[in-house]
Design a protein around this nucleic acid. Sequence first.
DNA 1: TTGATTCATGCACAAACAGCAATAATCAAA
DNA 2: TTTGATTATTGCTGTTTGTGCATGAATCAA
Lengths: 297, 297
Amino acid sequence: MKVDFDGIQAFVAIAELGGFGKAAEQLHVTQTALTRRLQKLEAYLGLKLFDRTTRYVELTAVGRDFLPQARVIVGEVTRSIEGLKDMSKRSHGSFTLACVPSMCAHILPEFIRQYADICPGNRIRLLDATSYEVRNAVLNNFAELGICIMGERNDELAEIPLFDDRLMFFCRDSHPFSNKSSVSWSDMSRADLIVVSNMMATRVVMDYQLAKRGIRLSGAYEVRHHATAISLVAAGVGCAILPASTLEEGDRQGIRRIPLVGPVVKRKVVLTKRKKSTLSPAADAFFNLLKDYRFEV
Amino acid sequence: MKVDFDGIQAFVAIAELGGFGKAAEQLHVTQTALTRRLQKLEAYLGLKLFDRTTRYVELTAVGRDFLPQARVIVGEVTRSIEGLKDMSKRSHGSFTLACVPSMCAHILPEFIRQYADICPGNRIRLLDATSYEVRNAVLNNFAELGICIMGERNDELAEIPLFDDRLMFFCRDSHPFSNKSSVSWSDMSRADLIVVSNMMATRVVMDYQLAKRGIRLSGAYEVRHHATAISLVAAGVGCAILPASTLEEGDRQGIRRIPLVGPVVKRKVVLTKRKKSTLSPAADAFFNLLKDYRFEV
DNA sequence: TTGATTCATGCACAAACAGCAATAATCAAA
DNA sequence: TTTGATTATTGCTGTTTGTGCATGAATCAA
């Protein structure tokens, strides 16, 4: 059983244009070739699709029945194929990007804007999730690319560092530290400290790096989202330790962002993909955009 | 632009069975051939559809997007093709038969029964219409076959005589003629005569044959359908001249059917098809059933 | 009857394709 | 680490399939 698409295509063209000659022209082959293609199809089916003499061509009853189906087939196939070719030629298409919420707010909007310039019309399905979930989404092919926090090494994943996101101290204007140019970890008082939940990658990184220096920190409050922490700070609940990317100094009225030292702790924001998986042209274009970008810290 | 159906089929099989080897088995080719088909398709598209090493095969993001479409294509094509092959092999399918109402009631039911035995599952679209309309339906390919009254010769139509349908005299039991074994045209009185409309083929044939003998007949009542005429006779409105096929003697209580003589006038019932048009296998089976049938008159 | 048009066919050549055998890459088990 | 099993890939070759050119045959119109 060897299905003959050429024959079906020839059939539709002949039926549509009412003759072998015109159909041949449209398909860019000689009329001889078309005759043969149709003959082959008819022989294979054991049916005549056209009643024809040398002077005219007319569908048989069977041909009339088949025409709509054949039209659908030809349409479906050429549409799909052309879509894919277009995809490869012009990086057209859509892809899924998994990204931690903090980066969705920080670097992503700018990149999406740039990407839209390069690949207009492309859609990005954005999956905002925790760093852990992002990595899993990429590993399981739910997302082609991920932006997350560098964590435990995984052989299946390729990770391209984007930038270092330094942890900072956030407090209100009225806080005693508000005019200091830097704050040390040892200055922290547990009483009013807001930290990220220890389920989150940022916290894991922080605890690990502090532990190496023998520092152990715990806050009075734990939250999952950076935005929540900022809200609490603004409301006067306390001070927070958060990545610098959460908020630029001066971005929000009444809230100060002060560098933390002794030691300087950073989380590494990475772009990640599965090593094994070939990116779609759409994702690849995005990947290339980010990969070589020079971040000013 | 030369679309490669084999490649798409290979793609679906590999994706579905998860490997070249199994797919090759299903498609009854060597695994070498499958590798080549997929390579060709990928080269043509400029895209990788699978990430694969020698040990495992996995869809790329693009492949995942394409799979549903490809499935539809393969399904659609094989379904259509198999349907057509089935059509040719087992005379499977449906066709349109145009037929005059009198024959729909008379010979057709029996034939449809016989046809159903030969081609179970086949559907006949029955177009009941006047003889003139039947011929036109066949000429314009609205119907593949027609059963009608032989009329003016037409080069486009092939007509196979089915049987001669003799005109008869129909009256009530109470009619003075009811016991006669035959009635002559000259016996007719115009007063209570019911004849078919002169728009109808039966009437045209009748008038023509009578005219050759110098007889000119007109009735008090004209109807389009034979069944109407019979109803009028039954109701005592008058007597009717109708084809024998309308009613068998004794079929209907209180109505007598008496041969008409001097001259004997017949209408010829024919099976007709367009000379140029090739019949569908379904219609062809029906055609062959009728063509050689011996009618006892 | 002639000429124009259009589908079909004979032939020869080129391209595509399949299969075999061998290779290469990977994973698992020893 | 090595060995073996598994599975995709590649080189090679013979065959099949497909195309185009030139020609033929059928039909319609003038």
